[in-house]
Amino acid sequence: MTGDLIQFALMGKYIGAGLATIGLGGAGIGVGTIAGNFLSGALRNPSAAPGQMANLFVGIAFAEALGIFSFLIALLLMFAV
């Protein structure tokens, strides 16, 4: 009986880890939106683009950090719970 419970918990753990990785898709959407908008802006005004590279990377970093959080949750579920 306890063995079944353990197996059940294990299943929940793996499913949870898989679900947590969905969050990375959001990070992908965010990074893509930022990069795409940067590119369309840069094509309109190429001379201003190099000065905004820092802002581009900061924006990408912020968007990506949230995806990394969900990846971390997945890792925690897989290896630490």
Partner: peptide, 23 residues
């Protein structure tokens, strides 16, 4: 880490499994 330990079956290996970052 309770599940991991039970599955691994050896308490000594607990730190070997899991995330080394969280040790």
């Amino acid at each position: 880490m309770s599940t991991t330990e039970t599955v691994a079956g050896a308490a000594g290996e607990a730190s070997e499994k899991g995330m080394p970052q969280l040790n």
